[in-house]
Design a protein around this nucleic acid. Structure first.
Lengths: 134, 134
DNA sequence: TTGGGTGCAAACTATTTGCATTCGA
DNA sequence: TCGAATGCAAATAGTTTGCACCCAA
């Protein structure tokens, strides 16, 4: 399902030129919904066939996020997580283990939204439930 | 109201030894509810009577957060915000301006909470509404 | 061929750490 | 006094940038 061809098309329809490195990175990310840091992605890419430099990985992740292929999750002050699931959902963040887990959208019900400050529009709502081992 | 004496007592009751630098930092933070970065606090301290080094500011903020006097707000990958309002509330984060604003607790209603993963307990729920200038 | 993409290394920034000095109960 | 707190500078980690090279349309 996530054949190379599918990935190439996914990138194209997002307006991203499918270069060798970008396809390699995309194949890793979109193999399944997951939360990865740039460093993890860099390592995974370089275990595979093609390689990519640190700069290219960062550039690519930033580009994918801007094009809506990825979601940046900011929960840990030391690094950004990239979430290959861009559908609406929330997160648990375990501060002991550093592991990010999904909360399905229907597990939290928000029935009232605040008024936005004047002159602004929403670009997304995030719910993070911080947890620790008990 | 936020006299030096009050601040000293506040630190003491939180189990924090009230040294010169800590009291100075606390006076700035608790003057009113606000969201400040470590850098801003460093500058503000050093405009005042006493001074503090960068390391002391970071140490102090970390200590205050651990003791529950401050809340760390992680919304910007480049820096941590320290919120002197520790009562339950949520945040707007304007990604254009970098400004963090409070959302009163009653402006959002969450009527269903997710089950936590086994062996974990919650240490806080955060809601961040990202906004941009329209 | 030629402009976007890539790679490398250096730059940058926020934060942390090691260690000698100083402060305060 | 004597351990805790501080200050400084260096170290660290994640991320960004500058620029020369390269490849694919």
């Amino acid at each position: 399902m996530n054949s190379r061809e599918n990935i190439v098309n996914k990138l194209k329809s997002a307006g991203v030129t499918p270069t060798t490195q970008r396809v390699e990175i995309a194949q890793i990310l979109f193999a399944r919904p997951q939360h990865l840091s740039a460093e993890q992605i860099l390592k995974m890419v370089n275990k595979g066939h093609s390689t990519a430099s640190k700069a290219t990985v960062y550039n690519t992740l930033g580009l994918f996020a801007k094009k809506g292929l990825l979601r940046e999750v900011i929960v840990d002050p030391t690094k950004i997580f990239y979430d290959s699931n861009v559908s609406r959902h929330f997160h648990f963040f375990n501060t002991d283990t550093g592991v990010l887990t999904d909360i399905p959208v229907d597990a939290i019900h928000i029935d009232k939204l605040p008024e936005l400050p004047q002159g602004t529009e929403s670009s997304g709502i995030e719910v993070i439930v911080r947890i620790k081992n008990s």
